[in-house]
Design a protein around this nucleic acid. Structure first.
Lengths: 198, 198
DNA sequence: AGCTTTTCTTGATCTAGCTCAAGATTTGCT
DNA sequence: AGCAAATCTTGAGCTAGATCAAGAAAAGCT
């Protein structure tokens, strides 16, 4: 008989290396996270609304996005299974922004509500250290992306993305990837054609 | 006789609202920060080197930058007097990146060394909460900038920057501002000419 | 003060990538 | 399965902003 990993066990395993809590406490913390799910296309977190949860992604792909008045939309980043997701600035600082999180594929999460988080934060000061480390990691990732966008041509950006995250082409509409890569959908399409014909 | 605010008092006043320490502890923490200074053009933090300090800026303007192989350089952001500065990802996670910090004007700082920080972090867990809040704030600011860059034309970016941070035109070379605004120095010059002639 | 270096401006040209458009393909829905 | 909606591809033309170049102005240095 094969032992199947439960959702909570996955969260536990994700947290353990970075969160300095005794095992029993860590389990108690994990129990504060509740299952949620979303269908393809649904919001995980709406723009200009206060984020109520931290999410741990069990399944699916999400994107961080914003929309311009003219109706163009822009993708700032993706989140995947096995990572924490959410609008951190909004959750932690209660400041809303125009960015939102949208599910690109059917998605399942474990989510901790802000109230539970605040209580836990009082009880286990170690949580702050953990949150600090992952917000810092996100900051670093975003800096990398910004560099990527400024330093490379459209073609280079496409090639590097293909190498690093090529699987996404099968999962999400190309126009969303184009928005992430800072180019129009047509340009992306042409770059793809060009790279296979050679 | 006028009481003059000392450098340490300025740091104290900056920290107090966000750092939940008793006054005596806060003073002890402040005493861990040592004066440093740099001349115009000098590095505050070099790229690809582990950051050893958090800085509190007493005086001067600095910029966060990186350089492409081709020798073009890009400005990701500025820091000013009255704020904390430094390469946080590198200081906190010990991961180096290609971004560095350069002083654009003669600058003075109070700086806390990583060793002192780590000791203080053990002694006062409240420091993690404080660091979390400001790294989150920085993340939010960077997100805003990214949106700004994607959503607006060169002219709009110039006008908005002029309104928000116009004073910088008197303090730092325009080509650096151009790099920050994601345009060439020539384009910036032309936009400026155009906006005064009207 | 005078010389050097850097920065800024302005003109002329070029091009990467955008926009618009229309057909082909895929996906989703009942 | 069959229809509707969304997505992807390809072509043609355009334009915002880059690049190259060279003179003017300002800043820095001894």
């Amino acid at each position: 008989m094969v032992a199947k990993t439960t959702d909570q066990e996955r969260l536990f395993a994700y947290l353990q290396p970075n969160l300095a809590l005794r095992e029993a406490d860590l389990w108690e913390f994990v129990k504060l996270w509740q299952p949620q799910q979303r269908q393809k296309g649904e919001w995980l977190s709406q723009p200009d609304k206060e984020e109520q949860y931290f999410y741990f992604v069990l399944e699916g792909v999400q994107r961080l996005l914003f929309t311009s008045e003219a109706g163009r939309d822009f993708t700032l980043g993706f989140s995947y299974a096995g990572e924490v997701s959410g609008l951190f600035h909004s959750f932690l600082l209660r400041q809303t922004t125009e960015v939102g999180l949208q599910c690109l594929t059917p998605s399942r999460f474990l989510a901790i509500h802000r109230d539970a988080w605040l209580t836990a934060q009082q009880r286990w000061p170690e949580l702050d250290r953990w949150a600090l480390s992952f917000v810092t990691r996100i900051l670093m990732g975003r800096t990398q992306r910004e560099i990527e966008l400024l330093k490379h041509t459209a073609q280079e950006r496409y090639e590097r993305f293909q190498a690093r995250s090529g699987h996404l082409f099968l999962q999400v509409p190309h126009k969303i990837i184009a928005a992430y890569l800072g180019m129009s959908a047509e340009t992306l399409s042409r770059l793809r054609a060009q790279s296979t014909e050679r």
